[in-house]
Simulated scan of single mutants.
Amino acid sequence: EPLDHVLLQADLTAVAPGPLRRPLAETLEVLAEVESKGGATVYRFTSGSVRRALDTGRTAAELHNFLAAHSRTPVPQPLAYLVDDVARKHGRLRVGAASAYVRCEDDALLNEVLADRRSEPLRLRLLAPTVLAAQAEPAVLLARLREMGYAPAAESATGEVVLAGPAGHRTPPRSAPEPVPDGPPRPDARLLTAAVRAIRAGDLAATTPHRPKAPRQTPTGELPRTTSADTLATMQSAVLTGDAVWIGYVNADGAASQRVIAPIRVEGGFVTAYDHTADEVRTYPLHRVTGAAEITEE
């Protein structure tokens, strides 16, 4: 059958000669530390264990009465001294939580704020004659006090007044640039089709004599010469038909040459074409083309 008593020892221990009743065992586990178990359980009283019992709301007098009521031996004097010593120090320092505080050297002003019913949402509490604790964030506390007609200033952790600077204007974030693919861009279907037509036209140009349309026939060895409008029209027509064109071209150094090209695209004052002379796709400024003539069969 569970026991309702222990044997208190002068060395700040208690011996339970057998299983204890649940309420007694639970209280002893708070008031003392279990030192050993076996046929008899040994409990040791320490300042930490006594403080733990006081933290549950028990007083020193209640602890003395509990020990006297559940011990078959008198309460040893060292244990009574331990309980009284810990109880005397217990609670002299208090620790709590506060989101913000209000500090003022004028305690009358603090009492006025505390008595103002508009401050109730801040849950203010007087910690000292010159300090109020609030259950609100500092920014909320500042705004509320200003709404109430006061002029509080923010304070840093070191007690210095926090100065408000001008609001900064940040540049809106920029989106990351699209990655540049390695190598030249992949040609589209239109460009590939035009390139095939240009190659076929080049094969034709290799076996066909170059001759501009009448009446603007150009002597052999001379550059073809046409007006800008005729040159543009010839290029645009060749883009549609896929025909090769014989052009005269003057480069940036002033060197003149004749070329056989298959126009692919004409836009923005430039013609992109397959150049049979260079065997590659090139882009030429139209203002450097002296003339253009379709390649005709004799």
Rank of each mutant, 00 (worst) to 15 (best):
L114W: 04
E112G: 10
A16D: 01
A233K: 10
Y81N: 12
V162C: 04
D188I: 02
A198W: 02
L240V: 15
H64E: 15
V30Q: 13
L28W: 08
L93K: 11
T59C: 06
E137V: 01
G149A: 02
L240T: 15
T171M: 11
R118D: 05
L28I: 11
E1S: 13
W246T: 15
D243S: 07
D107K: 08
A32L: 08
A98V: 13
L142I: 00
P23K: 11
V95A: 12
A14L: 07
P179T: 05
T193F: 10
V75G: 05
D182I: 07
T73S: 15
A201S: 14
A205S: 15
P129W: 09
V15R: 04
T208K: 02
N251L: 01
E1M: 12
Y274H: 13
G39F: 07
L142W: 05
R282N: 02
G96M: 03
L163G: 05
Y274N: 06
L93N: 10
Y150N: 07
V95G: 04
L124M: 02
G254S: 11
L20T: 08
P152C: 09
S237K: 15
H276N: 08
T158A: 09
H276R: 09
D4S: 15
V239I: 15
D55Q: 15
G159K: 02
Q9V: 01
T158W: 07
R225M: 09
R186Y: 04
G96V: 06
E33F: 13
T226L: 12
T226Y: 10
R170Q: 09
T208Y: 01
V50P: 00
R259A: 00
L93F: 15
V30P: 03
D116V: 05
G165W: 11
F45M: 14
R144M: 02
T227D: 14
R174T: 03
T231P: 01
L8E: 00
R72L: 14
L110Q: 08
R186W: 01
N65Y: 14
S71Y: 06
V271D: 05
I261E: 01
G248L: 12
A61N: 07
A100Y: 01
H90S: 05
A205I: 13
T59Y: 12
G57K: 11
T220C: 09
R265Y: 06
H210M: 06
H276P: 04
P166T: 10
Q236T: 09
T220Y: 05
